[in-house]
């Protein structure tokens, strides 16, 4: 009860937060691409479930983890294509098509699970922790930061990559201009449709991988609806981030930290009702959002693009 502030406990909480943040990072960064280009994809949850299942199934059949990730990415890409077809080409209301995609993805993943695996929960050997030499040996810090599995490291490496792509490359400029002012971008010869397709597909791939982290890089088994709302939180985190990759990082870590903290408090027997503890991450996210001001959404977010000349 009194050892909440011991070094082991504090580093334990941080370490867990780092691992818990992983799916939020993949899915959140993917959604960041969507939204920066002006597409709002609420179907992340459905894509994640399909990614989780396909990765699990491939690993279960072949034992090859990288094939599993690839499968999740391909399925994510495919789901992203469906989403972009509906929201870009058919110019559908994006929030609702996202809900439809979620229903479809969550349902189909359960259905496949029942048909292909007879609905039996089984486990596979997932990504094992990878200790980084030297750094991994530092007491506490090593265990917390440098003894995670490959997918965790990759998630954190993805943040600078996304920053560079979005803010330091021509492609990033195009993406942002399509999200801010598609008419102007179009006049300058940027293909709004192509960029949006690309971004929604990138978002799909990353969401697929986010799902895969559940089934082969964290829990290493598949269960229906196992992502349990992570996709919606990831979308919310993008708003929280102010459309900046490091904002996604901050949001994901904050949310995961509070979750890790409340679990630890329960284990240590600190007496708060568990349901109240479970609320904390959500309440804190809202409060933080109120105090972090001055965010501008991409101006054309969730507005389907129409060429004005027809």
């Amino acid at each position: 009860m009194n050892n909440l502030f011991s070094a082991a406990t504090i580093f334990g909480i941080i370490g867990m937060a780092i691992r818990l943040a992983m799916p939020y990072l993949y899915a959140g960064l993917g959604e960041l691409f969507n939204q920066t280009a002006g597409c709002f994809n609420l179907g992340v949850e459905g894509i994640m479930m399909m990614g989780a299942f396909s990765a699990f199934y491939v690993v279960y059949q072949t034992g090859n983890l990288f094939l599993g990730i690839a499968a999740a990415a391909v399925i994510g890409l495919f789901m992203g294509l469906i989403m972009s077809l509906i929201s870009v080409t058919f110019k559908a209301a994006q929030g609702i098509s996202g809900i439809g995609l979620t229903m479809f993805g969550v349902g189909l993943s359960s259905l496949l699970f029942k048909t292909l695996l007879q609905g039996t929960v089984q486990s596979v050997a997932g990504f094992a922790p990878l200790k980084i030499p030297v750094l991994g040996d530092i007491p506490f810090i090593g265990e917390t930061f440098f003894q995670n599995n490959l997918m965790v490291y990759l998630a954190y490496c993805l943040i600078p990559v996304c920053s560079v792509v979005l803010y330091k490359t021509t492609l990033g400029l195009k993406i942002r201009s399509v999200g801010q002012n598609p008419q102007a971008a179009d006049t300058l010869g940027v293909s709004v449709i192509k960029i949006r397709y690309l971004c929604v597909c990138i978002g799909g791939v990353l969401a697929g991988i986010a799902g895969a982290t559940f089934s082969i890089a964290n829990i290493n088994m598949f269960q229906e609806k196992m992502t349990n709302g992570t996709g919606y939180i990831a979308v919310a985190l993008v708003y929280f981030s102010g459309w900046k990759p490091k904002g996604v990082l901050f949001g994901a870590l904050l949310f995961s930290f509070v979750n890790a903290l409340q679990l630890r408090m329960q284990v240590l027997g600190i007496n708060i009702p568990s349901d109240v503890a479970m609320m904390l991450p959500y309440i804190l996210t809202i409060i933080t959002l109120v105090f972090v001001q001055g965010r501008d959404a991409p101006a054309a977010l969730s507005v389907p693009y129409e060429r004005s000349e027809n």
Partner: peptide, 21 residues
């Protein structure tokens, strides 16, 4: 208590926390 019958991920985090302690 994870307060959910289906939250597999939080359940595994809970088990990890127990074992950490």
């Amino acid at each position: 208590y994870t307060s959910s019958f289906s939250d597999v991920s939080l359940m595994s985090a809970a088990a990890e926390t127990h074992m950490d302690e």
